[in-house]
Design a protein around this nucleic acid. Structure first.
Length: 586
RNA sequence: GGGGCCGUAGCUCAAUUGGUUAGAGUAUCGGACUGUCGAUCCGAGGGUUGCGGGUUCGAGCCCCGUCGGCCUCGCCA
């Protein structure tokens, strides 16, 4: 069966096409029935075009009155220039309209559960259940198109830079370090399981052992952890690995890529090279290892000044080896007790015991703790923060990490409260010099901060035995507007260093052999110096699209409880399937 | 696993202290209208107040449980 197949899309006709006879296909977006004349906006991925049904063709006009939003139609008609006063500047095609001669109903659709419109207010649950309707909306289509452009640029860029795309397995081996694995039961090997990859880490390193030299892949990764607005259980990475390189080569390649992405998608010229901050600097100044540099709020250190004061909370924090730090906020003096209490809740949720503050007024420092300080002490603290009348200073005191972290959370909250972030501003940076290992009190052992294949800095190798907490890693994160959008490292390429790291992590020879033998074997046969990075495709797409949730740049996302409202996954399965897999459910 | 917010018409929300027949906007359906563009105007239909139990003369509202959505802490090498 044939139909009036389109000659153009709904986004491309203009005055240049005036008086041409064209055919369009698409969805009825809106119907404006004026009685004698009916206007229909016809929609497809490319845009909207106004159709006119009038006495020029009474038969078509009669058909038009029965058309409803979301019907799928084909029309044939003449492109007509609109009179000056009848143009619609909001539409790319607003200078023309189609005088319809023939109309054909291709599919009559059910009335959708919510309007396909930029104005739709449907909740996310309804949108996800009827995702195929939600994805008809221009905003969602734009988001997916932005994502497509990003992926296309990646294929082009890495190809142009001599990278080879290699696919790695999804059915692979569970490596219990790190995130929880998604497991896949084996039918042929009773009681055995595959794991879906948390990342293709080991495989890409083995490709370096194989001499592939430069590897690239757009790849799905899976982590069975709780979700967030910026975390889905399955997500996509640009996975990159290179041989015979050091950190600088990774920075250069990735900066070139990101600059091209911003130029082609946002029209933004990034200035290269990107800024770099060490982990320690980032934590001290911003209280976060992925700081948002779009606003001027900084954490200042007043350990020395405040430690000498008569305020017990400060002096004991310092005598116990901790720190006292603070943030000055311009113009915050009028904030109410209620507003300040809300901020205190935030720092407490992030590990602080409380929130001390000064209000800088004309002739006094107004503060519940002012009485513990001498006039000189108050003056020098205020001077240290360069605080002026009308400002507030917020303080945190205690162990270094929890103090800077809680003030970092405060900094983020205040930027939101004061609306300091500009949406169209993009601040990228590298965060470097991460500690290689973190000590976990509860297990009494060290864990890798990045992963166990991350190379320590050469000058720190000797510290592996004496003071592992001081060892810095050759690891780096790429940060955009307060989000980590990528992370990687230079890897260990010598078996003896790898063995030493496993020792430190409390992984025995046998265990290491059992879990990672395929990598160790590779190292044994000789790996070139190598390293790489993985970039979070979903997060980058989200930031480029200006979306607040990963769900808005994923066609078929999962809910916060990791279900798919559209398909109903996960679901129970037949007993027969379980039997074949040698499984019994509890 | 913990904390918070939410669940009422297809959709988005309202409903005073627990009190009459649960309302509005929008969508849908019918009608009017020859230049609209989120058209407008007139009219109509539309409800298991997520589900189960309890308290009460009486529950959308209070209590217990449960399911679901969102945010978040833990978690995410």
């Amino acid at each position: 069966m044939s139909f009036l197949k389109r000659t153009h899309t709904c986004g491309e006709l203009s005055i240049a096409n005036a008086s041409a006879v064209v055919r369009l296909n698409g969805w009825v977006h809106r119907v404006r029935d004026q009685g004698g004349v009916v206007f229909i906006d016809l929609r497809d991925r490319y845009g909207l075009t106004q159709l006119v049904f009038s006495e020029h063709n009474p038969e078509a006009a009669k058909d038009a009155t029965s058309l409803r939003p979301e019907d799928i139609i084909a029309v044939e008609g003449e492109v007509a220039r609109r009179d000056e006063d009848k143009r619609n500047p909001k539409l790319a095609t607003g200078e023309i309209e189609i005088i319809v001669r023939k109309v054909e109903l291709l599919t009559k659709g059910k009335t959708p559960p919510f309007e396909v419109s930029e104005y739709t207010q449907a909740g996310e649950d309804v949108r996800m259940k009827y995702r195929f309707i939600d994805l008809r909306r221009a905003q969602m289509q734009q988001n997916l198109i932005t994502r497509h452009k990003l992926v296309t640029i990646a294929h082009e860029y890495f190809n142009a830079h001599n990278f080879i795309e290699v696919e790695t397995p999804f059915l692979t081996k569970s490596t219990p370090e790190g995130a929880r694995d998604f497991l896949v039961p084996s039918r042929l090997q009773a009681g055995h399981f595959y794991a879906l990859p948390q990342s293709p880490q080991i495989f890409k390193q083995l490709l370096m052992v194989s001499g592939m030299d430069r590897y690239f892949q757009v790849v799905k990764c899976f982590r069975d952890e709780d979700l967030r607005a910026d975390r889905q259980p399955e997500f996509t990475q640009f996975d990159v690995e290179m041989s015979f390189i050091d950190e600088e080569d990774v920075y250069e390649v990735i900066e070139g890529f990101i600059a091209r992405v911003f130029k082609e998608i946002k029209g933004v010229e990034l200035s290269l090279p990107l800024m770099r901050l060490s982990y320690e600097e980032a934590m001290n100044k911003y209280g976060k290892d992925s700081p948002d540099l779009r606003y001027e709020l900084f954490i200042e250190d007043v350990t020395e000044l405040a430690g000498k004061s008569g305020f017990g909370v400060f002096s004991s924090a310092v005598s116990e080896g901790g720190v006292v730090k603070g943030i000055r906020v311009k113009g915050a003096e009028p904030w109410s007790r209620k507003e300040i209490d809300a901020l205190e809740v935030i720092v407490k949720e992030n590990g602080a015991k409380g929130l001390a503050w000064f209000k800088v007024r004309e002739n006094e420092i107004y503060s519940p703790i002012a009485k513990f300080f001498s006039a000189d002490e108050l003056k020098s603290i205020v001077a240290h923060f360069e605080a002026e009348v009308g400002d507030m200073i917020f303080f945190g005191a205690g162990p270094w990490k929890s103090t800077v972290t809680s003030l970092g959370a405060l900094r983020t909250a205040m930027a939101k409260k004061l609306e300091l972030t500009r949406k169209d501003d993009y601040k990228l940076l590298w965060v470097t010099d991460f500690p290689a290992f973190e000590f976990h009190e509860e297990d009494g052992r060290y864990y890798s901060m990045h992963h166990p294949f991350t190379s320590p800095r050469p000058e720190d190798v000797s510290l592996l035995d004496s003071d592992p907490g001081k060892v810095l890693a050759r690891a780096y994160d790429l940060v955009l507007n307060g989000s980590e959008i990528g992370g990687g490292s230079i890897r260990i390429h010598r078996r003896e260093v790898q063995a030493k790291v496993f020792d430190l992590l409390g992984i025995s020879r046998e265990e290491a052999e059992e879990r990672f033998s395929f990598l160790l074997g590779g190292l044994e046969y000789g790996a070139p110096p190598h390293g790489g990075i993985a970039l979070g495709v979903d997060r980058i797409a989200m930031l480029l699209a200006g979306a607040d949730s990963l769900r808005d740049v994923i066609a078929f996302p999962k809910t916060a409880s990791a279900t798919c409202l559209l398909s109903g996954a996960p679901s129970i399965v037949d007993q027969k399937q379980l039997d074949e897999l040698h499984l019994k459910t509890k």
